[in-house]
Design a binder for these strands. Structure first.
Lengths: 208, 208
DNA sequence: GTCTATAGAAGGATAGAC
DNA sequence: GTCTATCCTTCTATAGAC
């Protein structure tokens, strides 16, 4: 959870790091300002001098964590999917990336926090969705559309196809992870799972 | 949120109803025992006499809500899916049921609470999953398997197929709803969405 | 900028009267 | 069984010294 937000002051950096760690691990309500101050080895007064209020600090942390996380994922996937001209291979590589992304602890943590706090912080959910899943799918459906026009995928609505592929890859994993249940995360299990998703998708959208 | 748990005492009933309403709406941490007592028009001492502790009350409410909700859904789907011998029609009817189920406020509320509290109450997540999604899919994959053996669906792993169909139906809806974003819920939009899922599924698993 | 000390409010839980 | 009144803890936020 290091260096979510870069800053000049070391105390400020310590505060942001501590807040990120604790908020991501336990959500908003269960983290006290005392705990953040202790974790950051800073007094509460210093904490308040830097962050304003608990709400403000929380919003800052979540927004920045979302942003950095999603941008990183975006770049990864973009290079991954552009690297091959074989549709099946590209989908497989993309699917594995998505699955690994879902399995990362930080991803789970962000999602859990957003779910838990979406009533108290509605604007947070929207910005999470826009900068994450929506941005992601806009890019992916663009790629799908190009494959359709190139004749490598059956013609159809690229947005629907993109949503369906992601849904197949997500499968039950997302549900299980979101409520803290274990998921097989060895390479073989992931490849098998993604293989099933790609098989089904290509049966429906392939041109072979 | 009425009558989650039947009981003889009216005060006890009032406590359970109030707790269910508030816990489902705001989660565990943001609901005080004072608030529950006020909502139930009962003193705090009476509240504690009936429920033991806040944790105990919460566990009771969530488990009972899950159970009653899931059992009801189960029965509905079972009758729905058995009512026709046409695979496509059965899947369509089933998909619409699932979608409507996902859109119900109580469904969303339970899921949000389980996500938010799965760290504090791990056994709650397991019982939610077992009595809900897992039980559900066990039944559905049984049906899929029978269709496969009858030659109405292509042979394959019924569990994978069941998971994939549910994933297609869930699509983006579950994600959006879980973080409090709006979802089109008019009949036409639902039918179109389910129709897309059924089309893709039958292209991959149909025998036509 | 940074600390100690504290104000002021709210929460979980219980004692004791009826 | 039910209520009122209260204890003790914890929380957010700030005042005031350095």
């Amino acid at each position: 959870m290091s260096a979510i937000l870069e800053t000049e002051s070391p105390k400020r950096q310590a505060v942001l790091d501590a807040a990120a760690t604790l908020f991501m691990a336990h959500g908003y309500g269960d983290v006290s300002m005392d705990a953040i101050a202790r974790e950051a080895s800073v007094s509460k007064a210093t904490l308040y001098a830097h962050c304003g209020s608990k709400v403000q600090l929380f919003a800052t942390i979540i927004n920045e964590t979302c942003r950095s996380k999603m941008v990183a994922a975006d770049v990864l996937v973009e290079t991954e999917i552009a690297s091959t001209s074989d549709v099946g291979e590209a989908l497989r590589a993309f699917g594995i990336r998505v699955t690994q992304f879902l399995l990362e602890p930080t991803t789970q943590a962000i999602y859990r926090v957003v779910v838990a706090e979406c009533v108290r912080f509605p604007e947070l959910a929207q910005s999470f969705y826009d900068s994450g899943p929506a941005h992601f799918r806009a890019f992916f459906s663009g790629w799908i559309g190009r494959q359709m026009r190139a004749g490598r995928l059956r013609e159809g609505d690229p947005t629907v196809a993109a949503e369906q592929f992601v849904a197949l890859v997500r499968g039950d994993i997302h549900l299980r992870i979101s409520i803290g249940l274990s998921v097989p995360h060895d390479a073989a299990a992931i490849e098998r799972h993604v293989g099933d998703a790609v098989d089904t998708f290509l049966r429906a959208f392939g041109t072979g």
